[in-house]
C-alpha cells in the first residue's frame, strides 16, 4: 500500500510540474503585457525599463527557472495592475470558492445518497424512474445555462433569491444548487448502482438469514459497503468544484478564485492568472491524492494489505 501511495504522490508532483510549465510558457508566449500596461506612445526606453523591471528581458529558460524557484518559496510576484502581491489577491478570493464548493458538495450528497438508496431498494418504482430522469438530465445540462434559468425563475420572476453576489445564506442557494445538480446526479447514479451491487451480494443474503430487521440489513450492512465509493467520490467532487468553479462564479458574480482568474485574463494580469490556476490545480491534485489515501484507509481490505 505504501508503495502505491508514494507512487501516487510522485505522480501528483509530476502533474503539478506539467501544469506549472503549461501556464508559464503559454502566458509568456502570448502577447507582451508591457503593451497593455503602458501608453501606446510610451518610448522604446520606457518599455525596456519596464521589461527589465518585470524580468521579461532575460532568456526564457532563465525566466522559467526563476519562476519555478519562486513558486516553491510561495512568491508569485505582484499583480501587474494593482502592484499588490498576488498572494493577497488569492487569499481574498479563495474562501468564497471553498465555501461554495463545500455547500455544493453537502447539497449533492444530501440529495444524491438518499435518492440513490431509494432508487436501488425500490428498483423499478415510479420514484426510481423519476430519480433516473433527474440524474440523466443533470448529466446533460449545461451548468451555466441552468444557473441562468434558476436566476430567471427564482430571482427575476419569483424574487425569492438574489441573482448574484456573496453575502447571506440566501445568496448561496442558487449557485450551490447549480454547482451541485450535476454532481448530485452523479452521486445518485453511483449510490444506486453501488447499492444494487451490494443488495445482490451474499453477505446481504446472509444478514437476512440471521433474521435481522430489513432496515438494519439495508442501513448497517448495505449502506456501509455502498458508501465507500460514494464518500471518496464526494470528496473528489469537492476537489473538482475547486477546479471548475469558473463557470458558476461567473454566472452568479460570486467573488471567488475562478472569477478572479477570468477577470485577470481579460486584463492580461498574468501573475494573477498563473498563481490562480496553480493554486486551484494544486488543490485539485492534492485533493485527488487525498481521496486515494482516504479510499485506501476506509477500505479495510486495502488498509491491512501488506506489501
Amino acid at each position: 500500500m505504501w508503495r502505491y501511495l508514494i507512487g501516487r504522490a510522485l505522480q501528483t508532483l509530476l502533474s503539478m510540474l506539467v501544469v506549472i510549465s503549461i501556464v508559464f510558457f503559454l502566458t509568456r508566449l502570448s502577447g507582451n503585457p508591457v503593451h497593455l500596461l503602458l501608453d501606446v506612445n510610451a518610448s522604446e526606453r520606457d518599455q525596456q525599463i519596464l521589461m527589465h523591471h518585470l524580468g521579461l528581458d532575460k532568456p526564457l529558460p532563465v525566466q522559467y527557472g526563476i519562476y519555478v524557484m519562486n513558486i516553491f518559496v510561495g512568491d508569485f510576484g505582484n499583480s501587474v495592475l494593482t502592484r499588490r502581491p498576488v498572494t493577497e489577491h488569492i487569499w481574498e478570493r479563495l474562501p468564497a470558492t471553498v465555501e461554495l464548493g463545500f455547500v455544493a458538495m453537502f447539497l449533492s450528497v444530501l440529495i444524491g445518497v438518499p435518492l440513490g438508496m431509494y432508487s436501488a431498494v425500490h428498483r423499478g418504482s415510479m420514484l426510481d424512474s423519476a430519480a433516473r430522469v433527474f440524474a440523466v438530465l443533470g448529466q446533460s445540462m449545461p451548468a451555466f445555462w441552468l444557473g441562468l434559468m434558476l436566476i430567471l425563475i427564482f430571482a427575476v420572476v419569483l424574487g425569492l433569491f438574489p441573482a448574484g453576489g456573496r453575502g447571506g445564506v440566501e445568496n448561496i442557494v442558487l449557485p450551490a444548487f447549480t454547482l451541485g445538480y450535476f454532481t448530485s446526479a452523479a452521486i445518485l447514479r453511483l449510490t444506486r448502482s453501488a447499492m444494487l451491487e451490494v443488495l445482490g451480494s451474499d453477505y446481504i443474503k446472509f444478514a437476512r438469514l440471521k433474521g435481522l430487521h430489513e432496515q438494519i440489513v439495508l442501513w448497517k450492512h448495505g449502506l456501509k459497503n455502498a458508501l465507500l465509493p460514494v464518500v471518496t467520490f464526494a470528496v473528489m467532487l469537492f476537489v473538482q468544484f475547486l477546479g471548475g468553479a469558473v463557470v458558476t462564479e461567473t454566472v452568479f458574480a460570486w467573488p471567488g478564485l475562478g472569477r478572479l482568474i477570468l477577470e485577470s485574463i481579460t486584463t492580461r494580469d498574468y501573475p494573477i492568472v498563473q498563481a490562480g490556476v496553480l493554486v486551484l490545480s494544486a488543490l485539485y491534485l492534492v485533493g485527488n491524492l487525498f481521496v486515494d489515501v482516504l479510499y485506501s484507509y476506509l477500505n479495510p481490505r486495502i488498509r491491512h494489505a501488506r506489501a
Binding site: 451474499d202 438469514l209 433474521g211 435481522l212 479495510p300
Partner: peptide, 24 residues
C-alpha cells in the same frame, strides 16, 4: 419469520469468501 431465521433455522452459504460482510 424474522424470529425464526437465525434463531430456529440457521443457514450457511456456499462461498465463505462472500457471505461475511467485508465492512464489519
Amino acid at each position: 419469520m424474522r424470529r425464526v431465521r437465525g434463531k430456529k433455522i440457521a443457514m450457511v452459504l456456499q462461498d465463505p469468501m462472500t457471505s461475511l460482510n467485508p465492512a464489519l
